[in-house]
């Protein structure tokens, strides 16, 4: 709170304002003539953003109007033909991928939120060994996708994998986890929950430690049980973090690619096909970068809509706590 005030006074001490650097620090109302010095701070990041984010997005949208093979320089303008093929039911795999991507999102994000919050609540107290637990649960978050896919590929091995052995020991028969369309996507859900729950736990731990202790004290004096305190204090108080993590999770779910691709390549029979995998397959395996760009644009639109909705929710959640 004090820092902006200091900036204002410094501007007053220098009445001769001849550079745009100090021009905007005068206590002028919102509308000013000179470019705000804020732009100078933002400009480097904005330049990187323009080159590595904005330009590729524009280029992707542009190539979605073309039909080409990605190798020859010949590009044929086809207008909205790619979109017609994609949305018009001509490509059943696209809709399969949309369904899977949405299913992926609505299953894995709540799972990660629930496990993450649960772990955080359990590990916030003075539990013996909580540092060890936190480290263990956070560990998957620092592993690379290839390593994760490799390890879980072994676990789901239909003959010797641990998951198969456990199932056999429990009286079941062998199970081709990743080759069976019914189980493949659920196996991948499990890997995703395993991977990100620890990260969510860490964010929730930070949020829980921001909660004023006296809330718990007075609740305890009032005779609230452990469960009531968790349910009535912790959960509402960490709501902004929940919404933020939902945003992270949804964006992450839409972008999920490597682990699923290495585990199943979107198979069997497109059972684990995600939009991101479709984009890769169309662009590189089927040599249709134009069509892949159209799918990428659809994914971008989906992400943007979700992000805007969740950002609105974030301001709502912040207000609800204050």
């Amino acid at each position: 709170m004090t820092a902006p005030v200091r900036l204002e006074t410094r501007a007053d001490e220098q009445p001769v304002v001849d550079t745009p650097t100090t021009g905007g620090t005068r206590p002028a109302p919102r509308r000013r003539r000179r470019p705000s010095p804020g732009w100078l701070y933002v400009a480097p990041a904005l330049a990187v953003f323009a080159v590595f984010v904005a330009y590729p997005i524009v280029a992707t949208i542009r190539s979605s109007f073309y039909d080409y093979d990605g190798i020859s320089p010949v590009r044929q303008w086809v207008g909205l033909e790619n979109y017609r093929e994609m949305l018009g039911g001509l490509d059943p795999y696209f809709w399969k991928a949309v369904t899977n991507t949405l299913l992926w999102t609505v299953v894995t994000v709540p799972a990660q939120l629930l496990i993450g919050l649960g772990l955080a609540v359990l590990l916030d107290g003075a539990l013996r060994g909580r540092v060890v637990y936190r480290t263990v649960f956070f560990m998957p978050a620092v592993l690379s996708s290839a390593v994760i896919a490799f390890a879980w590929g072994w676990i789901f091995n239909p003959d010797e994998g641990v998951a198969t052995r456990v199932l056999r020991a429990a009286g079941g028969s062998g199970q081709a986890w990743l080759a069976d369309p019914g189980t493949a996507i659920w196996a991948a859900f499990g890997v995703s929950a395993w991977r990100y729950s620890g990260l969510f736990m860490l964010f929730y731990l930070a949020a829980i430690q921001m909660i004023p202790r006296d809330l718990y004290e007075s609740a305890r004096i009032d005779g609230a049980s452990w469960w009531q305190r968790a349910r009535r204090i912790t959960v509402p108080q960490v709501r902004p973090m929940t919404v933020l993590l939902t945003l992270f999770g949804v964006i992450g779910a839409f972008r999920e690619f490597e682990v699923v691709y290495i585990l199943t390549r979107g198979g069997p029979a497109h059972a684990t096909d995600l939009l991101s995998i479709q984009i890769f397959d169309q662009a590189f395996d089927l040599s249709r970068p134009g069509y892949a760009a159209a799918i990428a644009t659809a994914l971008l639109a989906l992400t943007a809509v979700c992000a805007v909705v969740l950002l609105r929710l974030i301001s709502w959640a912040n207000r609800s706590v204050e």
Partner: peptide, 13 residues
């Protein structure tokens, strides 16, 4: 990031 964050947090433009 810190440059941009500072700029966005301290200046309204």
């Amino acid at each position: 990031g810190s440059l941009a964050g500072f700029g966005l947090a301290y200046y309204r433009f």
